[in-house]
């Protein structure tokens, strides 16, 4: 019996590892096929992305810019507000407030992302268009703001963990020297937890890069080499949705663009997550 269970659990573990390997494998093969037909330089540095229209062009920069715009918008919303929220929870709020606010943050993190997309179109975009009439119906700003709201609970929660990892002995030491709460927070606690905060920021950015539904709904479907957040753009993820839903035949070059874009997306989030992990491992050593 023990042996059977042992193999059963091993099989389960193996399935998850194999699935990951298979995904990476398929991604690599199709990406390799894509690069047989499109030179890597054209792909990485080309400024037009029209794989479905004539004349076809496979420069990923417009999609990268689209994703970048979303990330910047999300970062502007989520990083300062998330950190401030964490500082409030960790340094100012009483135990009772924490008990109420923390679960609310977790609920916020559990809202399906399609709801956020809907929220962007029906709520954020009209406000933006009232404030700045030149704003397009689909625009990067609205999607970026909403992605920011989406990753905010994660930033707040991770930053809160980082701040609370700072030993109380340091706070006591600072208070006993006649520091105010703000001085203790800004000059001792935040600097001492900077690596954890930075790791939280990197993870948030990685999530914003991978975010799909809200940007597909709200940001538009126009590969656009621009840094103007009020224009319609397309992100890498939104492009993948668009082609997956369309009738692009398997095996064609247009179809393989999916995998090439997916590979770029995967590399970016993988690298960011590795960076965040490396930072967190380093700071964990400091207080042990």
């Amino acid at each position: 019996m023990e042996q059977v269970l042992r193999w059963l659990f091993f099989a389960c573990a193996a399935i998850s590892v194999l699935t990951t390997l298979a995904v990476v494998g398929v991604l690599s093969i199709e990406t390799f096929n894509f690069f047989q037909q499109v030179p890597a330089a054209d792909f990485l540095f080309g400024t037009r992305w029209t794989p479905l229209l004539e004349p076809k062009s496979y420069g990923i920069l417009p999609l990268l810019f689209g994703t970048t715009l979303i990330v910047i918008g999300a970062a502007i919303v989520a990083l300062p507000v998330g950190l401030a929220c964490a500082i409030y929870l960790s340094e100012y709020a009483g135990a009772r407030t924490r008990d109420v606010v923390k679960p609310i943050l977790e609920i916020l993190a559990g809202i399906p992302t399609i709801v956020y997309g809907f929220f962007a179109i029906t709520f954020v975009t009209p406000i933006l268009r009232t404030l700045i009439p030149s704003t397009e119906v689909f625009n990067a700003a609205s999607a970026g703001i909403v992605v920011g709201i989406m990753v905010l609970p994660m930033v707040a929660s991770l930053c809160d963990d980082a701040l609370r990892a700072v030993p109380n002995a340091l706070r006591d030491g600072a208070y006993s020297l006649g520091a105010t709460s703000f001085e203790v927070t800004a000059r001792i606690v935040v600097p001492a937890s900077l690596s954890g905060i930075f790791a939280a920021f990197v993870l948030a950015i990685s999530r914003a890069i991978g975010e799909t539904m809200a940007v597909t709904l709200a940001a538009g479907a126009t590969p656009n080499l621009t840094l103007n957040p009020l224009e319609s753009i397309q992100t890498m993820t939104a492009y993948i949705v668009q082609v997956s839903l369309g009738d692009t035949p398997a095996g064609t070059l247009s179809y393989q663009t999916l995998f090439a874009v997916g590979a770029v997306l995967f590399s970016m989030t993988l690298i960011l997550n590795l960076i965040a992990n490396a930072i967190m491992n380093r700071y964990r050593d400091v207080y042990e």
């Binding site: 002995a169 340091l170 006591d172 600072a174 208070y175 020297l177 006649g178 520091a179 600097p191």
Partner: peptide
């Protein structure tokens, strides 16, 4: 805060700032 400026404190475990 003013009280603590006049009355300093040293703790059980050394707690220098990093």
């Amino acid at each position: 805060v003013a009280v603590r400026l006049n009355i300093g404190m040293v703790f059980q475990k050394p707690n220098p700032f990093p």
